[in-house]
Design a protein around this nucleic acid. Structure first.
Lengths: 249, 249
DNA sequence: GCACTTTTCTCATTCAATGAGAAGCGAACT
DNA sequence: AGTTCGCTTCTCATTGAATGAGAAAAGTGC
């Protein structure tokens, strides 16, 4: 970066700025944003002005900064996630209605679970998934299902980076993977919340590997889990077909 | 831009690259992208590499470029649209089920209708709205409802830029605006498709101005329009309440 | 092998972008 | 009114991230 000791590129800075916002920090003051993004104040104001001019960020009357609608538009207009969401939404609605619980659609992204869509349900159990939020692979049923139905190279790569944490959570990791593949879904108790059980089934491509998972979080009950697993697998097949991937779970 | 005759900033270029993708061009070759974004080939490759490194773009084995998941994540994680979607989704589902037609959630953005969400319905009438797509204000019921319930300054600003096209579509513009405000919804025949009727009702803030509209596209029938209008207004009130805006349509 | 496209690299050049610090502004307090 | 503080804008000398033409390398199809 010209005349800057930091060596940042413009792109580095831009990403850091966008990364400064999250579900708990939807709007930020300029000084907080500068601090979070590690950008000197004077530079921050300048960069902010040009980002606002492009509507990548917006600023309200009180000076608070938020993401701009144009950014949202550009990022969603041709997003791969859009095709996935469009195909999955009707099935998710079915699950949402039939099981009466929050329903998620997730993918494996940069070694974490990325929530693509979430249908909420009044009265359902507590669920900490947020759209565009991340959760750990080894501590969610979604994550374990995503991993179990991934290509061997992907599993290998993931483990090369996360073997210790995975083994700490799952000393019987290999057996667990095999069981998930056998039953066709993943189900774990008390991961995120001790009173809940997550159930997740993979949406498969025509080679039998996952492209996403559909999941619910249930009150902790043994009997409902198997029927939820079956319903999720059924929905997953429908989604797969709608995506024209020819997957068979 | 250093050593470039174009005078572009990095940000200009970045936005042009993202703007090169749309619903009909979800993936592009590098040379097509360079052409659409008006960036010299050598620069395009370099910029692409750094955008891929940040996962703002991704590249498949055949060299095709798409938007990256990280971009989607950053843009959606704290988006204002997310709150709106979350509040509106249950009501949209109700409308979707009860009226049996595609349902949209839209906002007024840069003098156009921006579709925030769309629930589809098998067997429903043709509908050209895409999520994160744009449609013209003067040729959609959504647009007319958005305008009718906007603050006077916004209406004035819009007209200062679009008076001719609005008058061409609606010689009786003022009367139309008054009628939409009186009935509480907008309904127009044959705008996008001669065989359909759009019906749109505003989601209002506590000052009585729109923050979004919820709409459906119906087969062309006079009787269904009034009941659809009422259902949409009912849904809109629920959404407004869920957003805690205290709106009363 | 040849022709064409795609991709990577070189290199002299450059200007968009930098940040410290000053100046301006507004709000809150005494 | 004066002072303090935080926010915002401006100045200015500086600079290195970024440039693109064109060459070279690599890949693809006939």
């Amino acid at each position: 970066m010209a005349n800057s000791p930091s060596g940042d590129s413009m792109l580095d800075r831009l990403v850091r700025i966008l990364d400064s916002f999250d579900a708990n920090n939807q709007s930020l003051s300029v000084s907080v944003l500068a601090r979070r993004a590690d950008i000197p104040q004077a530079s921050m104001y300048r960069l902010l002005d040009s980002m606002v001019a492009h509507d990548l960020l917006s600023r309200d009357a009180s000076g608070q900064v938020r993401l701009g609608l144009r950014l949202w538009e550009l990022a969603n207009r041709s997003a791969t996630t859009q095709d996935l969401r469009t195909a999955a939404l009707p099935f998710m609605e079915d699950i949402n209605q039939l099981l009466g619980q929050n329903t998620q659609l997730s993918v494996l992204h940069q070694d974490e679970v990325l929530i693509i869509e979430r249908l909420s349900r009044p009265g359902s159990v507590v669920n900490q998934a947020n759209v565009a939020g991340r959760m750990p692979v080894q501590r969610t049923s979604m994550g374990m299902a995503l991993l179990a139905f991934s290509r061997p190279e992907i599993i290998g790569d993931y483990l090369s980076r996360h073997d210790a944490v995975m083994t700490a959570s799952h000393p019987d990791f290999r057996a667990k993977m095999a069981e998930i593949r056998r039953t066709g879904y993943a189900s774990f108790d008390g991961f995120i919340d001790p009173e809940t059980t997550g159930v997740a089934a993979p949406i498969l491509d025509d080679a039998g590997y996952q492209v996403a998972v559909i999941s619910v979080v249930l009150p902790r009950q043994t009997r409902a889990v198997q029927s939820a697993g079956l319903a999720l697998r059924t929905a997953a097949r429908g989604i797969s077909r709608a995506l024209q991937l020819g997957g068979t779970a």
